[in-house]
Design a protein around this nucleic acid. Structure first.
Lengths: 146, 146
DNA sequence: AGCCTTTCGATGCGGATGCATGGATAAATC
DNA sequence: GATTTATCCATGCATCCGCATCGAAAGGCT
């Protein structure tokens, strides 16, 4: 029942609040322009960068839950941005490919996403402090058990 | 369509990931012991500290959405931790009071919550860095428009 | 007083999440 | 090669969230 240090509590509340505000701002900005939420961008980008992938690989890369990704892919397939192609050497799985529309959507989202990130973070913290922030957050961006 | 600086993107991803991991760890720890989620603690603490309050005050203090708080209070009332008392000078509203059980629940949650925070943050970042982190996150813990 | 605007809090509805589980295939073990 | 175990992905179910909106009561204005 050790009471955490005051600095721990302060850092804790600010960390959670800052991340919440930032992601909210970003999601709201995309939404206000009729664009899909940030997660969609992350999926589209991952596939565009590293080629067609299987769900389990995306799952690891994006640090998302298995069922959450499964349903996210469902929605993106339904929206015509992704297609599921049966995996030749593993009948359990499939690979996820971008459609033309998927590629176009990623391109359309980027300027908006980038602008939102800039507004939420870049424009509010100077370069030097962003570097320090990234360094301090590095250990926290790894799983707790590790 | 300005591309954010590399340091901005790095800080961005780490911020979101760190907060997600931290809050996940905390929620999972409470849940594994059959305790309510962190938001419940925040409500209980706010009322215990500052006395009975109206929803709109809690809403400001906890930075939560109006409808989210409304339903959160519903659940907590149903669980017997809170009661809604009609407001004498404003027939639209009511004040939220802790029950005995509510007080007991807050006390029961604290050691677990504290331990989870310590594990997720306190034990992974030294005092000096926690202070720096809190300072760097300060501007980001304010609404984006401000 | 009578209206208009604002504030307070709840809620219907569609959609997303978390948890657990299921069905199918692949890999390992014997 | 047959049986067990592990992996891959989907899904039923309950809960929770987000958005919009609503009814009721205050507060302002003329």
């Amino acid at each position: 029942m050790a009471m955490p240090a005051a600095t721990t509590l302060l850092a804790w509340t600010r960390l959670l609040r800052a991340a919440d505000l930032a992601s909210q701002h970003c999601a709201a900005t995309l939404r206000s322009l009729g664009l899909p939420p940030p997660e969609w961008y992350d999926v589209l980008l991952a596939i565009e960068r590293h080629g067609a992938q299987r769900p389990r690989d995306l799952q690891a890369a994006l640090a998302t839950e298995q069922y959450a990704l499964s349903r996210l892919v469902d929605r993106m397939v339904k929206a015509g941005l992704l297609i599921r192609v049966p995996c030749p050497d593993d009948a359990r799985g499939h690979t996820l490919h971008l459609t033309i529309e998927g590629r176009a959507m990623r391109a359309a989202m980027w300027p908006v996403y980038a602008e939102a990130i800039e507004a939420a973070l870049g424009a509010r913290v100077v370069e030097e402090d962003r570097t320090a922030l990234a360094r301090l957050l590095a250990p926290l961006a790894e799983p707790v058990s590790a």
